[in-house]
């Protein structure tokens, strides 16, 4: 079984896709590490892959750790380094 996960794009990631999200396919019970690898494969730009290394995945509730499971339901976002204010 595999699952389709839509990753919402924010900040500098927005320049790498016409859409506000990139969809990736993951195995069932995937971790954030699996998600990071699949997302990197989906990116076509070396600068985007470099940005990914400094970026975090998050749900609407919290930033995820690399060992966390990817929620089967719920929205996932990729958060590049932040700079509010």
């Amino acid at each position: 079984m595999s699952q389709q996960v839509e990753v919402r794009l924010f900040g500098a990631f927005r320049q790498y896709s016409r859409d506000a999200a990139i969809a990736v396919t993951l195995p069932e019970s995937a971790t954030v590490t699996n998600l990071r690898e699949a997302f990197a494969d989906a990116l076509e730009d070396d600068n985007a892959r470099a940005l990914l290394k400094a970026s975090a995945f998050a749900t609407d509730e919290a930033v995820l750790d690399e060992d966390d499971s990817v929620p089967e339901h719920g929205r996932i976002s990729i958060l590049p380094p932040v700079c509010g204010g």
């Binding site: 500098a12 400094a54 970026s55 975090a56 958060l79 590049p80 932040v82 700079c83 509010g84």
Partner: peptide, 29 residues
């Protein structure tokens, strides 16, 4: 707020260029 809130800014310059500003990484991997 500046270090933890998921906020990003893109500066627009007088010369017509725009750039996303470098920030603080939220990840710990």
């Amino acid at each position: 707020m500046k270090h933890r809130a998921p906020i990003w800014k893109q500066e627009h310059y007088v010369d017509g260029d725009s750039e996303w500003v470098q920030g603080h990484a939220l990840c710990q991997h």
